[in-house]
Amino acid sequence: MAEENGDVSGVATLTKKDFTSDQEPRWCPGCGDYAILAAVQGFMPELGIEPHNTVFISGIGCSGRFTYYMDTYGFHGIHGRAPAIATGVATANPDLHVWVVTGDGDALSIGGNHLIHALRRNVNIKILMFNNQIYGLTKGQYSPTSEEGKVTKSTPFGSVDHPFNPVALALGAEATFVARTVDNDRKHLTDVLRQATEHPGSAFVEIYQNCNVFNDGAFDLIRDKQQGLHNQIRLVDGEPIVFDEGTRCLAFALAHLSHGPTEPTCIGVFHEEDRSTYGEAVRSQLERAVERLGPGDLKTLLHGGDTWTVG
């Protein structure tokens, strides 16, 4: 509806400013979140998406603040539940552009259940998962993506937990769009986010994001300009390493090419497929019900079944 109703010339005049709220970002100086925010605010006007048809929904963690910096509709929810709130929003009004901004703790730990169910339902939401492999807002405990042996405040002898592979998890949850990108490569980040936006249905984008305070350098092997050149395996549809975004098992294999950002790692779009979105399916079911049963009539409803008259 946004596109249909939009005035084409009006859309073209949207700028980054239209998506920037009056709130001053309060992430730590040098945080990777700034780059992601700038990229999102920068590319949204290009897509002709109007702020009033856009909703950003976040959970708890440093990523949760993202919502306040976008001059769109926004809902900063509770820990881990953003995909569930977003499911409510995107199902109630399938015409909206709905984004979920989350982190590795928010999405994969406390909110793991909502994430996988939103993905398998193919709710039309774009999930940006900022992965910094640490709990930043609570000042440095290991996260479900931290490497084994991680020494943090809560694991002075090193963590013994095996981490999630977020891309593999999303693929296993039947996601229809799964990608990985890095916070400091503006072009790659923007390209991936643009593809995610254009994908009808759930898009899961893992963004390697540097927490320069509690986990600095976690992704150096991939993010660093020099090393990154050697260690990023860029997935480009149809290009060598001969790659086809439509094949889930190939994507799954590629997801497991590395055990983490400590060895050559794939970035780009792992998988994309077409499947009807949840919101559209719900809407068409409502329409079919009206076709079959006629528009709901309260009197017919109450008087249906056996009634009797007194007097």
Binding site: I78, A84, T91, L286
Partner: peptide
């Protein structure tokens, strides 16, 4: 009673159900 435009979702858990309803209320 979907012909009344009633959306019903069987959520993945109790917490999700509440949050979906709240998201819909926002909408």
């Amino acid at each position: 009673h979907k012909n009344f435009g009633v959306v019903t979702i069987q959520a993945e858990d109790e917490i999700a159900a509440a949050n979906m309803a709240l998201g819909a209320a926002f909408t």
